[in-house]
């Protein structure tokens, strides 16, 4: 009984369904919602990481973008921002809601794409690249800052994805890449670096810009970035070091030292704040911080104005 329904797209008009999905996402707080072409994703994603590797009958990948940090967050210390800067939780929440919304409204099997690591893939290997979904859906383009996606209107966003067997009209990637911004091009021409390259604490970024102000090369030492902003190697390292030493005092220091106690606290209360981003590259990025809708207050005002107009 299901098969004919699928072929008929569950009896749903694609365009109307897309409008409803987009409206739902925006109503729930998304800045942007787009549909990525599954065929494109299958071709681009590394082997084993295409949408169909998770959901064989997926016909549409919905990418949901939510706002980045508040303007104030760009001015606080990096360690504080590691805790407050992320709002991916909102993206996941909307994605979850969208999945239920589609199943409820259209009867099409839908999943919230897991954002976590793939236990079969090993450490730091995600189930899917949410970034790739967003890029193909037109929610951002790769920047010189380690390929963090930037949007000309919303700046930096966090993403969530939804896979569904419902066919929806696909969007296309952005026509133009907002990165580098004109001011960054000027800086590059003067010193050979853009702000993100210059201010990266671990110097993990480098690249080239052509005479037309377009990216020609982006080099990213991701492991250096991860050393700075992620700490998953520390837990086994602490345990290994403690086991390896023959000195009881040193062992105590390793196990109960400042870093260890903090880590074990994080583990015991399942607080992920320690795995915070560095974001020094975004802190100095004119697109991330100064794009027209990067300002949460402005976004809110716009939202309220739209709501009032609708009433």
């Amino acid at each position: 009984m299901n098969k004919p329904m699928r072929e008929a797209n569950f009896g749903v008009d694609e365009v109307a369904a897309k409008d409803a999905v987009l409206a739902y996402g925006k109503r729930k707080g998304a800045l942007a919602v787009g549909i990525a072409d599954v065929e494109a994703l299958q071709k681009i994603a590394p082997e084993g990481f295409g949408p169909r590797d998770i959901m064989p009958r997926v016909r549409s990948v919905i990418s949901i973008g939510v706002g980045g940090p508040t303007l104030g967050a760009w001015g606080v210390s990096a360690k504080a921002m590691g805790f407050m800067g992320s709002s991916e939780g909102l993206a996941y929440k909307i994605a979850y809601g969208t999945a239920y919304f589609i199943e409820r409204e259209f009867g099409a099997p839908t999943i919230y794409c897991p954002p976590d690591s793939d236990q079969e893939g090993g450490a730091r290997i995600p189930f899917q690249s949410l970034k790739l979904h967003a890029e193909v859906a037109g929610l951002g383009a790769r920047s010189l800052a380690g390929d963090i996606l930037l949007h000309p209107e919303f700046g930096m966003m966090y993403y969530g994805s939804v896979f569904t067997e419902l066919a929806l009209p696909v969007d296309t990637p952005l026509n133009a890449n907002p990165c580098p911004a004109p001011s960054c091009v000027n800086m590059y021409r003067e010193i050979g670096q853009t702000p993100c390259m210059k201010f990266c604490p671990v110097e993990c970024l480098s690249g080239e810009i052509d005479t037309d102000g377009r990216q020609t090369a982006m080099d990213f030492d991701m492991y250096k970035c991860a050393e700075m902003s992620q700490q998953y190697e520390i837990v086994p390292n602490v345990l290994h070091s403690a086991m390896a030493t023959n000195d009881p005092d040193e062992r105590s220091n390793i196990m109960f030292g400042e870093v260890s106690k903090m880590l074990f606290y994080k583990l015991s209360v399942s607080s992920g704040g320690l795995l915070g981003q560095c974001f020094e590259c975004m802190r100095v990025c004119p697109i991330a911080t100064k794009a027209p809708m990067a300002d949460g207050v402005r976004r809110g005002a716009e939202r309220r104005a739209m709501k009032k107009a609708a009433e």
């Binding site: 790769r142 380690g146 990637p173 080099d219 990213f220 030492d221 492991y223």
Partner: peptide, 17 residues
């Protein structure tokens, strides 16, 4: 692996497979 990433141009946005 992903540890070192070197991209030239903007092939994904252009869907240049």
């Amino acid at each position: 692996s992903n540890n070192i990433q070197r991209r030239r141009g903007d092939p994904v946005r252009r869907l240049d497979y």
